[in-house]
Design a protein around this nucleic acid. Structure first.
Lengths: 226, 226
DNA sequence: TAGCTCAGTTGGTTAGAGCAGCTGACTCTT
DNA sequence: AAGAGTCAGCTGCTCTAACCAACTGAGCTA
């Protein structure tokens, strides 16, 4: 039955064509509308909130959620952390997921990234160089690099999924690994990726991305041995 | 605070190294353990259930969930359906997500699929041919084809993600599109994919996959015009 | 011994009360 | 008259207490 309530709220959103951010009925209204107790309404809303379908603001109201990939990040992160502590190489699997998808997509990107994005990538790499000299590349900078690169894919859903994978990996890594970094190599590899993409050289770009991931994987392995 | 309860239950799973299927404390136990009311415990569990972290069996108990991609499928499906009804081309975006990832991976697969899997793929394609002659290819058969193909990636997480994308797309498509099928072409394209992978011809495999998706996209476009 | 029944455990649902955060209109001060 | 402070009213949040429903397993019955 709890399942049923969730479905009815979902249908309500779909039937009324509610966009992200639109207000949903209040809890008392939903009670009457669905004919169930307040508790059941709340449990259904909590579940929908966990899936990002609904957004609840205390003292304000309930709204249609952003439908982002945040729940997926949450789920992937937990799955990976739990697996790691049980002795599985789940972090490596997550890294390989990213590697497989990103190396597969980079050829598609080569030569198709607009000049404005390339300039932005140059700026990000320059920032990386500064940060590397100052001790280490900030995570936010690396994230911006990948996000800008994937913008050229011209598919919001795809970009969000890739960002979700990055976020999950990053969150798990910072939790589990004491951040063995090799800033110099990291910067050079990002440079190489931009250069290859700029020239439209697909195979070279693919090699560059693969090297980048090889680097991360190697550092993971050497620090993660139990 | 609700957020806090969820975190504490998650930590409980991680700290105790609980594997999928392990029993969790009962609701009254969690009440005492966390020092909150039953209501709050239940709302937290509902949210965790929605994320697949926890599995609740009425009259039996609460258990660590399967950590599958099911919640992601759920979320993607809803996001896509809701977007569709609001006039976005979300279904096309979802298809392109699959296309981008699968064309990127097929080269990686060419020549690396073990003979046993290739034989299984042959059998599946044969079944497709039978079904095509009988009216149309069953969805389950197409799903089996992709699942078997991706098994060769040797990464459970990656396979699950790809299956999740397939499931989400299929669920949305059957809901929204009256299933314009061209069984003949579909069978031929699957045959071509297997042939290319068997020969280890990466570029040819990539072309074959792309043609397959072109075919689906074309059918979508021609039937989805509003 | 095989099957049934029933008590006990677990989660599911309802009800009602009070707490807490936010908004907006009203009032008081300047 | 304009601004800041206050308070009434919405909203969601938490708690308590009771009962319903599904499942298990021990004990009873045939």
């Amino acid at each position: 039955m709890a399942r049923d309530i969730q479905e009815r709220i979902k249908r309500l959103i779909i039937d009324r064509r509610l966009p992200s951010g639109a207000p949903l009925p209040t809890e008392p209204e939903l009670m009457e509308l669905l004919g169930v107790s307040r508790n059941s309404v709340r449990e259904a809303l909590k579940a929908l909130q966990a899936m990002g379908i609904v957004e609840i603001r205390h003292g304000f109201g309930t709204y249609v959620g952003p439908m982002s990939m945040a729940p997926m990040i949450e789920g992937l992160t937990f799955r990976t952390v739990a697996g790691h502590y049980r002795g599985e190489d789940s972090l490596l699997q997550l890294l390989e997921l990213r590697e497989a998808v990103e190396t597969g997509l980079i050829a598609r990107l080569a030569g198709r990234v607009p000049e404005t994005d390339l300039a932005e990538l140059d700026a990000i790499v320059a920032r990386m160089r500064t940060e590397a000299a100052a001790g280490g590349v900030r995570a936010e900078t690396d994230r911006a690099f990948h996000a800008t690169l994937h913008r050229g894919l011209d598919n919001l859903l795809l970009s969000e999924v890739l960002e979700a994978f990055w976020d999950a990996f990053h969150r798990v890594r910072t939790d589990l690994v004491p951040a063995l970094a090799d800033p110099e190599t990291t910067v050079r590899q990002h440079e190489e990726i931009v250069a290859a993409v700029r020239e439209g050289d697909g195979p070279r770009a693919e090699r560059a991305v693969r090297h980048h991931f090889d680097n991360i994987r190697h550092r993971l392995r050497s620090s993660g041995d139990r």
